[in-house]
Structures are given as structure tokens and as C-alpha cells.
Simulated scan of single mutants.
Amino acid sequence: MEEVLTVIAGKTEMWIDEDHMILTSGQSLIVPAHRKHGFRNVGSAILHIHAVLASASFEATFEGSTEPVRRWLPSSE
């Protein structure tokens, strides 16, 4: 699933695979589906990021973890 990460406040280093970039408030990164990506706070303030996912389900595997995290939105039925 495609993902859009937008920096609301703060300064972050974001990456997709081996490509790293610094983003600040108002900037966004579009992450193509099935690409390894992440972010970390590189500023002195609290980092606020807004994530938009192109799917009703979420699945992630975090560095150092062997179990994926899965979340689904409740059914509207």
C-alpha cells in the first residue's frame, strides 16, 4: 500500500531503502508500496507526522522485531 508521510512540526530524517532526506514542517514524502522506509527525529523539538495510508489495513515490521504489527479498521457494517 502506498503511504504519504507529512511533517506537521519538527525536523525529520526519512528514508526509502537507501535514499535518505531531511524534511521539515509542510514537506511530504510519498512511499511506494512494499518499500522499506522509516523516519527519526533529528531536531530539538517534538516531531509530529501525519501518515495517510492507501488501505484500510496496516501492517509493519519494525527493526529488531520478528513479529509484524497488523491493524484493521472496524467494519462499517
Results as ranks from 00 to 15, higher is better:
22 I>K: 07
14 M>Y: 02
47 L>R: 02
12 T>F: 03
61 T>I: 14
46 I>F: 00
31 V>Q: 00
52 V>M: 07
9 A>G: 01
30 I>F: 09
2 E>K: 15
69 V>Y: 13
68 P>I: 02
26 G>H: 10
35 R>L: 10
52 V>P: 02
39 F>T: 01
26 G>A: 09
42 V>T: 12
59 E>W: 05
12 T>W: 00
43 G>L: 07
61 T>L: 15
63 E>S: 14
15 W>Y: 14
60 A>V: 06
50 H>K: 15
46 I>A: 14
49 I>P: 00
54 A>L: 07
40 R>D: 09
21 M>P: 03
15 W>N: 05
26 G>L: 09
17 D>S: 09
7 V>F: 08
70 R>T: 11
32 P>W: 12
11 K>V: 08
42 V>W: 05
56 A>T: 13
75 S>R: 08
45 A>W: 01
3 E>K: 12
44 S>P: 07
27 Q>R: 12
12 T>S: 15
6 T>F: 06
31 V>A: 05
15 W>M: 06
18 E>W: 03
39 F>R: 01
73 L>P: 03
18 E>L: 08
64 G>V: 09
2 E>C: 02
15 W>V: 00
71 R>N: 04
40 R>M: 12
71 R>I: 08
44 S>N: 13
14 M>K: 01
41 N>M: 09
54 A>K: 06
16 I>W: 00
9 A>S: 13
75 S>Q: 08
74 P>L: 13
73 L>M: 15
19 D>H: 13
62 F>M: 12
50 H>S: 14
72 W>H: 13
1 M>H: 10
67 E>R: 08
34 H>T: 07
71 R>T: 04
2 E>M: 04
58 F>H: 15
37 H>A: 04
2 E>H: 15
41 N>D: 05
1 M>Y: 12
